[in-house]
């Protein structure tokens, strides 16, 4: 019997022991696992039963009435739903690409800063906005971007002669400018935080590569292009893949910055559900909102599976789930 076969047999014999014996042997691990299991059951598995309401009309008073696929049929016929669906996809994907791209660029530049104290100060400054709540962020930018003499940005534009004082730009109040403004605010708030993971990757890089490149005559740009950026590529891909799975979850940042005049470009699925629930002047049909939620989750699931396949292809068999 070869050594390999012997090891394999030993492993096999271990896992073939009766369950009771194995549980007893690893009792400590099972005890440690128990809280997580209970947590998962209560907060992940039990709520799954809520899915059944998607196939009913339910107002929280009378017993749910089974209506089959009626709620889905209504949903697919509502222009507001489709508008929210496309808005969700567009805003999320563009936001993801922008924040990742800018975070990479910022990380590369941060990596080039030699003075460690200055680097830390800069890092702290760009991390800080992440810790502000979205409500505070929205209030802050409403003020900064106000189309009046009190708005910092408009005042600046007027002083530079770029905007007429009587025709200031209502950045958050116009469909034409809302999305761009949203992305800028998003970048301001989240770029710093996104750089954490890239900076960690850069910190683990082998410095000998740079030394070798220097000997070969590479300048800073050359090192960044041929060493740093390729080293980050795998991390960038991982970040994009992981975040792509979450693109359907978009609420707070949009909700606090949107208003009646920009709903056509800002209403996303989660705000759509919110308005269905609280804007009807009546007790909402939870069956319908659950149907929209289920559809959103199914799309999210599809994205996860696609990403998983994609991940396996580009990361040598390593999936994300």
């Amino acid at each position: 019997m070869s050594k390999k076969q012997s090891v394999s047999k030993q492993k096999g014999s271990g896992s073939n022991k009766p369950l009771g014996v194995r549980v007893k042997k690893y009792a400590g691990f099972y005890v440690m696992f128990l809280p997580i299991l209970v947590f998962a059951i209560i907060f992940y598995y039990l709520p799954m039963f809520g899915v059944r309401y998607a196939f009913t009309n339910y107002n929280g008073i009378k017993a749910p009435k089974f209506v089959g696929l009626e709620n889905f049929s209504k949903m697919f016929n509502m222009p507001g739903f489709w508008s929210a669906f496309w808005n969700t996809l567009q805003i999320s994907v563009i936001r993801l690409i922008l924040t990742t791209l800018v975070a990479v660029v910022v990380s590369l530049f941060l990596n080039e800063i030699i003075n460690i104290h200055f680097k830390k100060v800069i890092q702290t400054i760009i991390y800080l906005p992440h810790f502000l709540s979205w409500v505070v962020t929205a209030s802050l930018f409403s003020l900064i971007l106000a189309p009046t003499g009190q708005g910092l940005v408009n005042t600046l534009l007027v002083n530079l002669g770029l905007v007429d004082a009587n025709n200031m730009i209502y950045f958050l109040g116009s469909s034409k400018t809302w999305r761009g403004t949203f992305y800028v605010i998003q970048l301001w708030k989240e770029t710093g935080w996104q750089t954490v993971i890239f900076m960690a990757t850069l910190a683990g890089m082998n410095l000998e590569l740079y030394e070798a490149a220097s000997i070969d005559g590479a300048g800073r740009w050359g090192k960044m292009r041929y060493i740093t950026f390729p080293a980050l590529a795998n991390t960038i891909l991982t970040v994009i893949i992981l975040n792509l799975a979450k693109v359907m979850n978009l609420f707070e940042s949009v909700f606090v910055l949107q208003n009646d005049a920009v709903l056509d470009v800002s209403n996303v699925l989660e705000t759509y559900i919110y308005y269905q629930s609280f804007n009807s002047g009546s007790i909402p049909n939870y069956g319908y909102t659950t149907a929209v939620g289920l559809f959103k989750s199914l799309v999210g699931m599809a994205l996860v599976l696609i990403c998983n396949q994609w991940s396996k292809k580009v990361r040598e068999g390593r999936g994300i789930v």
């Binding site: 039963f49 809520g50 998607a54 629930s277 939620g293 959103k296 989750s297 599976l305 789930v321």
Partner: peptide, 20 residues
């Protein structure tokens, strides 16, 4: 994997579906 994804998805629905 599929089961886990489905479970997570469904759990999200529990939250997204309002006060169901």
């Amino acid at each position: 994997s599929l089961f886990m994804v489905a479970a997570m998805t469904a759990s999200l629905v529990g939250c997204g579906g309002g006060n169901a």
